[in-house]
Amino acid sequence: MSNLRTIDVALIRDTVADLCGQADLLLPADVRRALEKGLAAEESPVGKEILTRLLENADIAAAESMPICQDCGLAVVFLDIGQDLHLIGGDLVAAVNEGVRRGYEKHYLRKSVCHPFTRANTGDNTPAVVHVRIVPGDRLHLWVVPKGGGSENMSKVFLVTPAQGLPGVKERVLETVEAAGPNPCPPIILGVAIGSTFDDACLRAKRTLLRELGSVNPDPEAAALEAELLTMVNNTGIGPAGLGGRVTCLGVFVDIKPCHIASLPLAVNVQCHAARHKEAVL
């Protein structure tokens, strides 16, 4: 027992608070690169102008310590906790929520969490959504992903029939993007999880959004589908801000996993260009 590595949850709290600020104020480098690449590829003059403005917006946000987007998101926090690690100092989830509370207050971020029916704001952007996974090792890897409502509202889950198969999956992804149109602030990013169960598909779709844009999927089947879906989605012509153009989507992340012999679950998590994700390893 004595050689177990320990981490005080106060450190997790403070790290979460910092990452909330960084995520909402600084556009991630991979998203910036993708927007620049999009700008070079875009054919529509209006589309080019929108992409230019989005890059300018990120510069202003960084220079003036302003959020990239006023919707500073519901804080989704992923924790991969090494199984050889011992957490001390109190309740882990309470510490994460306290970190969110402090981070959103300190950095002047918008508190966007409310009761589902009365719509009364909780006032501190909690509760956060916390996903914990136990992994080998003695490190703690954490990600803060503030998720905006506009793009989350356009996300969909489908229980495709096995007979509809892969063509059915592609159709549903396209249908999701078409229905969303300009609403989720294109250019978008798509997190697509196929297989497993209803609940697991949704969580995996969200988890794919932790990936870096431009990274290569190690699963060749998924990588091929990512390329195909990206072309299909960009052929919709929706374009930046939905005003028409060739750059509707900056990247598609696909995760494929076995499922029940009766099922073919599909979850499509729509992410806007304000694709905020910051991580730390403790």
Binding site: E56, N57, A61, P67, I68, C69, Q70, G148, A241
Partner: peptide, 13 residues
């Protein structure tokens, strides 16, 4: 009238 979605810092100006 459309404003650019997600350009919150720019619009604030």
């Amino acid at each position: 009238l459309g404003a650019i979605g997600g350009a919150g810092a720019l619009m604030a100006r």
